[in-house]
């Protein structure tokens, strides 16, 4: 598991620029699907033929990052955030641009108590503006670099949101034997900037059921805002978040299935944040939606932490759901 997640977390895929991660995932899942293609927005859609209703599982493959907006006279690269970048947890991290150039994310102002994005820039070590522009083009995206490692039962990495979800969906595709539905496993783009990829993919696929496989916030560490789902508590079955209220039928199906198979689950009522189902639920005459999530501490930082047993539970629950 750790090696697979380390590889996934090491491939770049800032929102709007998911080609690398898409190619990587495509290569990994090819043996386990009947058909795989990219749609017009870049969503990677894998199809497993089957009888019955159309089920769409979604894991977003994009990650938060930065985009170069201009280069100042001294050669420092000014950047804008892509997705919700919190300077408190990202300042000081090394970054890599899409062409491989590396740099560090720095906050200029030291007077303020808390760093603000407008004072932040990327230092690529250029001598002047001309050199910087030779190395980094305006409009290029950069992702944050991080290490992926294990500590006890926990995995720590900077891109668990949502490469952990991608891993679960890939593993599910590998493990599921006889799917009792027409399965669309979609690795979506542009989730971090407004659930955009899912909207296009959901319209094209027009599923009966859509389930998001994503991370959720675990508020079980000191000073955190308390949450319903916690690390080690099992797969988090979404009740609602700020983007969707899940369909009662899906919640019941998932919970009953978990009880029968002895898969640990917990309920997830999230007071902030959303997932891809927020877009899909509203499409057409309406889609029945649910969510199965991996609790993560320190979300959107360099050290996001998840529990391996929770990840296993998510894979187990999704596999069971598709085979039921």
């Amino acid at each position: 598991m750790i090696d697979a997640i380390r590889e996934l977390a090491g491939v770049s895929g800032v929102s709007g620029n998911e080609r690398n991660i898409s190619e990587y995932i495509k290569g990994q899942i090819l043996p386990y699907v009947d058909k795989v293609y990219e749609d017009s927005l870049g969503n990677l859609v894998a199809v497993r033929r089957g009888e019955g209703s159309r089920v769409m599982l979604m894991a977003h493959m994009d990650q938060i990052g930065l985009v170069a907006s201009f280069v100042d006279d001294k050669g420092f690269v000014r950047v804008a955030p892509v997705g919700h970048v919190d300077p408190k947890t990202t300042v000081g991290r090394p970054v890599v641009f899409e062409n491989g150039e590396t740099g560090v994310f720095i906050c200029g102002s030291k007077e303020k108590k808390e760093p603000e994005l407008k004072d932040c820039y990327v230092d690529i070590g250029a001598a002047d503006r001309a050199e910087a522009l030779r190395r980094v083009e305006i409009g290029q995206t950069a992702s944050f670099l991080s290490n992926t490692f294990e500590t006890g039962r926990k995995i720590v990495s900077g891109a668990l949101d949502n490469r952990a979800g991608c891993y679960c969906l890939m593993e599910t595709l590998r493990r599921v034997k006889n799917n009792s539905c027409e399965l669309y496993a979609v690795f979506t783009v542009q989730e971090e900037v407004g659930l955009r990829g899912a909207k296009v993919s959901g319209f094209e696929i027009a599923p009966d059921v859509a389930i998001a496989v994503d991370v959720t916030l675990s508020g079980d560490h000191p000073d955190a805002r308390e949450t319903t789902a916690v690390l080690g508590g099992g797969a988090a079955v979404k009740i609602c978040d700020r983007s969707a209220i899940c369909s009662r039928g899906i919640i019941e199906d998932l919970e009953n299935l978990a009880a029968r198979r002895g898969i640990p689950v917990q309920r997830d009522v999230l007071a902030s944040g959303g997932t891809d189902i927020g877009s899909v639920q509203l499409l057409g005459k309406g889609v029945q939606v649910g969510g199965v999530s991996i609790p993560v501490r320190y979300c959107h930082s360099a050290v996001e932490m998840a529990d391996k047993n929770d990840i296993e539970a998510v894979i187990g629950l999704l596999t069971a759901y598709l085979e039921k």
């Binding site: 983007s243 969707a244 209220i245 927020g278 509203l282 005459k285 309406g286």
Partner: peptide, 16 residues
């Protein structure tokens, strides 16, 4: 259904 949340019910019904 759902107007106080995000209006999903009316959107579904209008489509259907």
């Amino acid at each position: 259904a759902g107007e106080e949340f995000n209006g999903f019910g009316a959107r579904h019904a209008a489509w259907e």
